[in-house]
Design a protein around this nucleic acid. Structure first.
Lengths: 211, 211, 211, 211
DNA sequence: GATGAATGAGGGTTCATTCAT
DNA sequence: AATGAATGAACCCTCATTCAT
């Protein structure tokens, strides 16, 4: 049987695979680095047999790739669903930040996903290629934020003269900045709410400023 | 004997330990993920015996922690040495970006370092705490960019009303964004030079804009 | 339900079991060593479900035992059918050798069968005992070659003073010699046709020579 | 470090590797089929750690290949050492048969070795090629019996007009036949001593008979 | 009777760590 | 101090077997 890649339509993903994806997210959220994730910890969390993992995937690496790809896809979809109804870019960014505040698992998964696609490992390349092959978007930042930026342009919140790539990377970068603040706040006792305000103002300014 | 922590004064670091640090940087630069780095590959690169690694460090994790900490320390020192003489923040940022363009090893090491300090793993916490304990700076972003920002404020390039944390995180994340662009350009055919210009303008604007 | 042993009368063997026996022969003929044969590869070849195998057999070992036993039984029967009409021992041996030349699958199956009954493993013992229990012959060499030797004695081709065991082992050994030649000819570029002639002359001489 | 192949000069074989070779021979002699031999059972017998096996060999298959090759090499060497002083081919064959009678381990190892080189598996091919590459002999039968046959020709025991290949295969297969008799005697109550006599006479006759 | 998804015991292999030299 | 052969715990993966459908 052909194996799972992570690009399957959501409704076609077998339930046990969804349980595995969720287990990976839990483990990442709890601070396991990718190398510390064991196949057995995934299957135990998922409540399935170890052998079952290999019914759906060829290797541990494939499991992780599938889980990561599924994570970005569902994050992108979720954002589009929840953000579209909101009336302004400011509200949308606030919603994203609230979401990250609420669910630390999401935060760590996002950070990990960024790690996976920015190092130059074999695994990284594989995940990026697979994501690209099967979607219309050119990069994963566009995958995540392309829609709300296009909306913002239509709405007039965003200056249409600014190159799309810059807009996307700017939003991506500011979101990442906020995430770094909240990821390291216990260590570096940062005044997170203050920075949050500044970050949001920064985004809005960048989106409106002609170059 | 007490072991190496990565915080030793540079002149007190044994030559074999420096060889090991360099080996780690080489491996990261070549696309090894941290989990793929073996103690044996480090010692082979360093041209020393495997047992020797354990004369200086208690475990593989300590080796990596030492190498990472040394990397940030020497990057910070190097930046301060080379950037101080430059006359403006713009020139300083350009110098940093040129440096990253030139040496892909630095780029990947930096990205990896960021990974290590933004996930919530045991290892990450240990590295962050050790860096904090032994330096006057509050977080690693300040460790890297604190000096040039303070210089910019003195010089008048940067608005002194903006909170220090915001300035630091902004520079840090813009630099990170640029690195992500160049790390993923083979995959996502991004127009890197164009983005570079926009990112630099963005930094300068963020540094000058009263909130 | 009582399971298949390999000793069933041919017409009582269920069709799916025959498909499995054939699959085993195919796999052996293709160079799979017994340890490399998987239950799943047998059932896939046979075009049946994996679970079905366990309707007929208790274990993988039983499947292989059944297949081996069936193989020798049908080989013996086939030889007797085809060899009896031939007029001389020489013609009969030539027929056997032609047959082995034609079908490499037979050759490898025969070699494998010999392996199975000459090592001193548990499996080997089981196969030998089962074959003995259910046939009148005293050993598998007699099982295969007993009939043509008895024919040869009646016909006068073979000296009746020579002990039966010796006659049987001699034929067996010479057939095995020929098989070793053709099994290793690619490796050792042997002049097979020349050796074939010598081997046949050797058999005929051994069968006629008083001791 | 480059790994062990089984073709190393005897004095260069590390002691732990010799212990492993011996363990393999013990296990085979006790009736383990090759597939039943575990790396852990080899290392336990050898009294070494499991990891140590992989210091010397790349895989379990390599361990077995090395052990088999070493077995044939030392068998050949031993035979040449012990058989050369004997005055006639008859005495030499008798010596071989006595040896096999005495040490059942040798018998089973020999039979197993023959299995390994007569099936058409990947492993078989590898062992044969390796043996051929590194020795002057053309095939493994010559490897074992070439010397005593050449001696016999010089001495006049063997007719020099008979093709070498035939002589070699004949001796080889008669020896194999004897081994099969003694390997299966518990099962098939054969009169082994009687057969032994006949087999030896058969060999001598085959060696002297012009074609 | 037939199936194949699910299982988990068990094996091969890796690699951080030790320790005798 | 330096070494690297030896180790064995731990992990990935396979595959014979089961059982609900």
């Amino acid at each position: 049987m052909s194996k799972i890649t992570g690009m399957e339509p959501v409704q076609e993903i077998p339930p046990k695979v969804l349980l595995m994806y969720d287990a990976v997210q839990q483990l990442i959220g709890e601070g396991c680095s990718v190398s510390q994730i064991r196949v057995s910890s995934i299957t135990e969390r998922a409540g399935i047999g170890k052998g079952t993992a290999y019914e759906y995937f060829d290797s541990k690496e494939e499991i992780l790739a599938g889980a990561f790809i599924y994570y970005v896809r569902s994050m992108a979809e979720e954002m589009n669903m929840q953000l579209r109804p909101l009336g302004s870019l400011r509200e949308q960014i606030n919603f994203i930040f609230d979401d990250l505040d609420r669910e630390s698992r999401k935060k760590y998964c996002f950070v990990h996903f960024v790690h996976e696609v920015t190092d130059n490992s074999q695994f990284s390349r594989m995940v990026k290629e697979r994501l690209q092959e099967n979607s219309q978007t050119r990069n994963f930042a566009e995958f995540l934020f392309g829609d709300i930026i296009r909306q913002g342009i239509e709405r007039g919140d965003i200056d249409s003269d600014i190159p799309m790539d810059y807009l996307i990377y700017t939003v991506f970068c500011k979101v990442l900045t906020y995430m770094m603040c909240i990821c390291t706040e216990e260590c570096f006792d940062t005044d997170v709410p203050a920075l949050r305000g500044l970050i949001i103002e920064g985004i809005l300014r960048d989106m409106k400023t002609k170059i």
